[in-house]
């Protein structure tokens, strides 16, 4: 399942493309590390769920999408929006509560959406996006369009009624949906070992008549290949699939998490299998030079620093706008 770095690049994946993926993964990581630091400094409030350690999943899946395809995201959604090409200035501004943010300060970390990129939205409710994903897919099917929907969720979402109902609906109507389950081993403190009586979460899909596969979520090439196949199946009208991407979150579930339910050793072991380190080794074994990788890393750090600068110099929203977005305008204009 996991590819060794000595293997050649998979077909149809060029070195240039792989370097682009590295840039995205590094951006996700640096962005979320920055958010973590800002939280500690008291500049970001509420809560936030960091994608650190899981970067290969969003990046690999979204790399297999085509323009016009859409995703539904989760409470742990920064990575999805960045992989879609999201504007990190507007993301950072949103997290800092500024008017230049994605949601003008209304939403924050858990509610970033960008229809223009195909992101129907992050979501504060576990499994809340799954029925919406199915509905978006129904919309494409009814309008005889060829787009595909990727519905991201965590492992915990598979125990929600909304997942069950959405999966069945997608299956009976052969909707163009790919359920991507980011199995990061824990739903908050609930270990998948305790919360499922399954060896692998992918096995659950059989109950809905949905084909499923399990991949190493820390190996972007495995993720990308599995996603490509599932997306092609959906696009061809053959119905939904489920991908279980096995990965790990290094940080706590959210800012309230003291990590009491797992060991330092376990976290350390997963860090040995870091998805970014893995991709770097792979690229170097396939001809990339170390200095160009370091250059990408520097550029990413600068871009995130610039985003922070943009956000911190942006104005706070004025309470006079509070009611602006409660209802859509009759004339179709936006707030």
């Amino acid at each position: 399942m996991t590819r060794s770095a000595a293997q050649p690049l998979p077909q149809a994946s060029t070195l240039e493309e792989s370097l682009r993926w590295l840039r995205i993964m590094l951006t996700i990581r640096r962005f979320d590390e920055t958010i973590d630091e800002l939280f500690a400094q008291g500049k970001v409030h509420g809560t936030t769920h960091l994608y650190i350690g899981e970067e290969a999943v969003a990046t690999g899946v979204i790399a297999a999408l085509q323009p016009g395809d859409v995703v539904t995201s989760t409470h742990r959604g920064h990575g999805h929006n960045i992989a879609l090409g999201g504007d990190i200035n507007a993301m950072m501004a949103e997290l800092l509560g500024r008017e230049t943010g994605y949601c003008r300060g209304f939403g924050g970390s858990m509610h970033i959406a960008d229809q223009s990129l195909g992101n129907l939205g992050a979501n504060g409710i576990v499994a809340g996006g799954l029925p919406i994903a199915v509905g978006a897919a129904l919309g494409f099917q009814l309008q005889q369009q060829s787009q595909v929907v990727v519905a991201f969720s965590g492992d915990g979402a598979l125990n929600e009624g909304a997942f069950h109902e959405a999966a069945n609906l997608a299956a009976i109507w052969k909707l163009p949906v790919v359920f991507v389950v980011e199995n990061n081993q824990y739903g908050m403190s609930g270990s998948v070992k305790e919360m499922f009586a399954l060896g692998h979460l992918a096995e659950r899909a059989a109950g809905y008549g949905i084909p499923a596969t399990m991949v190493d979520g820390n190996d972007i090439f495995s993720v990308w290949e599995a996603a490509g196949q599932a997306i092609e199946t959906a696009r061809s009208g053959s119905g939904p699939s489920l991908i279980e991407a096995v990965t790990y979150r290094y940080k706590g579930h959210s800012k309230s998490d003291a990590n009491r339910y797992r060991s330092r050793e376990e976290i350390q072991q997963w860090r040995q299998r870091d998805p970014i380190d893995h991709l770097k080794e792979y690229l170097i074994a396939n001809g990339a030079d170390g200095s160009s990788l370091a250059q990408i890393q520097r550029e990413v750090a600068q871009a995130v620093a610039d985003a922070l600068q943009f956000a911190e110099s942006s104005p706070w929203p004025d309470p006079s706008m509070l009611e602006d977005a409660v209802y859509a305008k009759e004339d179709g204009t936006h707030v």
Partner: peptide, 16 residues
């Protein structure tokens, strides 16, 4: 709380 969802940003939240 006025009839708006609770906003995220601090000055907006404090206003409601």
């Amino acid at each position: 709380v006025p009839n708006v969802p609770i906003p995220y940003s601090r000055p907006l939240e404090q206003a409601v």
